[in-house]
Design a binder for these strands. Structure first.
Length: 445
DNA sequence: ATATATGATTATGG
DNA sequence: CCATAATCATATAT
């Protein structure tokens, strides 16, 4: 058939379009639009039988049509619009249209079927779960108000914890807000685009057959596209959260030693309360305050209550684990407190300023009656600690070492001031000497 | 470069 | 929530 042959000669770019038309033309057989000139000057072939007697003229007509089609983009929008309207109004249009629909229905079924409901992407689910777990997705907790509420709630007990985490939380909130904003934006854009496309298709459905299924498919494609964009968003959000988290954890893990002074204060408390090295909450707060005060000159290394707790936890366990290693330290600090106590006592008794060259009592305030009590307690517990190896509730499982070492130092049993006297004759190391001399000062008061 | 010290975190139990 | 014990990871000493 000459028509189809001709059509087959079309350029590749037009082939698909023309193929449809060729089939349509074939299927409508003898029906033609002959005799009805179309607005815009496009003339359709005159009525002809299919006897093939007028092949050349027909070819010429078709050539014209093709030419017009190919140059249609050269025409103005108004012209095209008018032409479209003209076609729409053509009296044969309903018949043509129904045929087109029919064909479409047949061919469309084969187009579809291959791609259908894809299972939920496991990776997407993973991302969703993670975002949910990180609190990025899920119910909005009100951003700033939540942070404020949390801070308020924590201000009593774990204020430091909240402060430590506050900027992490702030950043997380920021990420969440961006995420939600973007998500909403995408959602909106998706909806807008969908309705736009649907309107377009509806508009086009007047001139070309579009089945509801096709629209549905189109919407599906759009949604898939947008959900893939959303997945990218989720992915980048996850990434941001991960980076934030790792940075935060790194920062937290980054260890900075306490200042010498802070360590001294903590050690002093520890060894003066060796029998029960469990500072109360208030005591911890005070220690934290003291430590941060003494170190105030440095960078803002504010030692928090939880840091004090950490310190005591570590200290207890490490002391208990290897008492021998801490002996020197224990003696040192015991001596310090003893000296201070002695000085305090001496000062109190003599009502004068008894300054010792070994320990310029700069860091310690003796005005405070608490401290004096502590000092008194420390003397007692210290002595019993040193010579029994254990005391109070802070029981030491392997206190034998200590006991032995002390025994080697002091073979006698312990009896109050006598101990000091006995030990005095065996002063060996400077630290112990310091301690012992300090102890010997005790009877002064 | 290796060893030790140390602050922080985690797991577990009360 | 607090204590302990183990562990991590870094800081500092050797």
């Amino acid at each position: 058939m000459s028509f189809s042959i001709c059509v087959a000669q079309c350029t590749d770019s037009l082939a698909a379009t023309m193929d449809d038309q060729a089939r349509i033309m074939q299927s409508i057989g003898g029906v033609s639009l002959a005799g009805h000139s179309v607005q815009g000057g496009m003339a359709l072939p005159p009525p002809h039988g299919h006897d093939g007697t007028d092949g050349d003229g027909r070819k010429q007509d078709i050539g014209d049509i093709l030419h017009q089609i190919m140059t249609i983009t050269d025409q103005s929008l108004d012209e095209a619009q008018a032409k479209k309207h003209g076609l729409n109004c053509h009296r044969m249009k309903p018949a043509l249209f129904s045929v087109l629909c029919e064909i479409k229905e047949k061919t469309g079924l084969s187009i579809r079927g291959a791609q259908e409901e894809d299972p939920p992407d496991p990776q997407l689910m993973r991302l969703d779960n993670m975002l949910l777990a990180e609190g990025v997705a899920g119910p909005e907790k009100g951003g700033g108000s939540a942070a404020a509420a949390a801070a308020a709630a924590a201000s009593g007990g774990a204020a430091d914890n909240s402060i430590e985490h506050s900027d992490y939380r702030a950043k997380l909130t920021q990420i969440r807000q961006i995420y939600h904003t973007e998500l909403e934006k995408y959602e909106q854009a998706c909806n807008e685009f969908t309705t736009h496309v649907m309107n377009l298709l509806r508009e086009q459905s007047r001139t070309r057959p579009i089945s509801p299924k096709e629209i549905e498919r189109m919407v599906g494609i759009i949604h898939r596209k947008f959900s893939s964009i959303q997945m990218q968003l989720k992915q980048s959000t996850c990434e941001a959260v991960m980076i934030l988290r790792s940075r935060f954890l790194d920062a937290r893990r980054k260890r900075r030693n306490f200042s010498k002074q802070a360590t001294e204060i903590l050690n002093e408390y520890f060894y003066s309360h060796l029998s029960n090295p469990y500072p109360s909450e208030e005591a911890k707060e005070e220690l934290a305050k003291k430590c941060s005060i003494t170190v105030s000159q440095g960078v803002g290394s504010t030692i928090t209550v939880s840091q004090v707790s950490n310190w005591f936890g570590n200290k207890r366990i490490r002391y208990k684990k290897n008492i021998g290693k801490f002996q020197e330290e224990a003696n040192l600090y015991a001596a310090k407190t003893a000296v201070n106590a002695a000085q305090a006592a001496a000062a109190a008794v003599q009502n004068s300023q008894a300054n010792s060259p070994t320990t310029p009592n700069s860091g310690f305030q003796m005005k405070d009656e608490d401290f004096q009590l502590d000092s008194a307690e420390s003397k007692n517990t210290l002595l019993s600690n040193m010579f029994t190896g254990s005391s109070g509730s802070f029981n030491l499982p392997n206190s034998g070492d200590m006991f032995l070492s002390m025994q080697s130092l002091n073979g006698d049993s312990y009896q109050g001031a006598q101990v000091g006297a006995n030990v005095q004759s065996q002063v060996g190391s400077t630290n112990q000497g310091q301690f012992l001399s300090a102890v010997l000062v005790l009877p002064v008061y």
